[in-house]
Design a protein around this nucleic acid. Structure first.
Lengths: 192, 192
DNA sequence: AGTAAAACTGAATAAATATTCATTTAATTT
DNA sequence: AAATTAAATGAATATTTATTCAGTTTTACT
């Protein structure tokens, strides 16, 4: 054998996400993870120095992946409104289809595994979003408000809705996304 | 001594909330709690059978307290709009001034300490909110949408905003509350 | 003050969990 | 196909954490 197996890291990550979704970050052990990933406990320590590093590595990975999907097809060909709607749509869909990722990230933020320094880096990944909102404010497409407030408004609505849908076992249909987007847009649009 | 000391339970709860706010639910031990509460570890077991019961008792207490404050002064003397704004205001203020309570509740929901049965009871505490929204929809004050969606929209905005404010060390001023409420209202109001 | 009951203490023990490592298995090289 | 190296195993060990309990202090009552 030549090198560490990427697919094993993948299996470990996937197992951890599954367990965190089911039991929460507070309720999982290295034994649980290895069992869920169908590997020996010792093998975890070949891929990660310890539990902290495993969780942190997964945290980093999840953040990278999320941000990547958020901005898919949000490009200059689209109007401001088009880009905003696309972004909104992407974020909802990603969070719905990858609920375990969202759940893990949310739980990690205020856990002993993740510290504030990491959080600062988050800003960069979401810079295009901040820029888009800034543009909207400057061109009077959206109300003249603190950019951060709009971001909180955006993620607040989406996070809560996705969480609710997940825990009540309901799918979020395209019609519902349209409806919520309308509410979101009415909330932020400029009206003199 | 005649009976167990209520103020000691209070101290234990307060200590736990402080620690969960700082380190997260995953990062606290019974030893940490007793130390923070300035009592011996053994004393914890006089008041609570074990860690699970401690956390669950605190969870129940926090939920009761929150719901109580949310509906303060939301009464029939007020117009529909007045009641809605008051409620919005109450929820924000409570969550700001008792951030550790909100943080603890949020983390508990998906922890091994709290199970789904408890969650069902939550519905009842928030019934007045559901009723208010239903009334709004029926009287065409707010858009004709799934009530649950409006609730998610409401809590989503507030939760995210309070979290952001707390972690960036900024106070939410009355002006900001007014601004966010305006956005919220524009999002849900009926417009043909 | 004297006494019994309740509350409190924190070191000792039990239980859970993380981590290591001697051994086995599989892959790669010569 | 033997030798070499990397990866995987899981029982053993170390560490952390929950829980208990024998002894101490405080309280409430006479």
């Amino acid at each position: 054998m030549r090198c560490k197996d990427v697919s094993k890291v993948e299996a470990i990550f996937r197992a951890t996400l599954t367990l965190v979704k089911e039991r929460g970050l507070a309720g999982i052990t290295m034994g649980d993870i290895s069992k869920e990933a169908s590997i020996a406990t010792g093998t975890l320590y070949i891929y990660f120095k310890n539990k902290d590093e495993l969780i942190r590595a997964l945290f980093t990975e999840c953040r990278k992946q999320s941000a990547h999907y958020y901005f898919e097809n949000v490009n200059e060909q689209l109007s401001f409104e088009g880009r905003m709607e696309r972004l909104f749509h992407n974020i909802i869909c990603y969070k719905m289809n990858n609920f375990e990722v969202s759940a893990f990230l949310e739980q990690s933020y205020h856990s002993p595994y993740v510290d504030v320094i990491d959080l600062k880096k988050k800003q960069k990944a979401l810079n295009p979003l901040f820029d888009l909102i800034k543009e909207g404010v400057e061109t009077r497409k959206i109300r003249n408000t603190e950019v951060q407030l709009i971001v909180s408004y955006l993620f607040g609505i989406i996070n809560e809705m996705v969480k609710k849908a997940y825990f009540s076992n309901k799918k979020i249909t395209e019609a519902v996304i349209k409806e919520v987007y309308a509410m979101f847009w009415n909330g932020i649009k400029y009206d003199g």
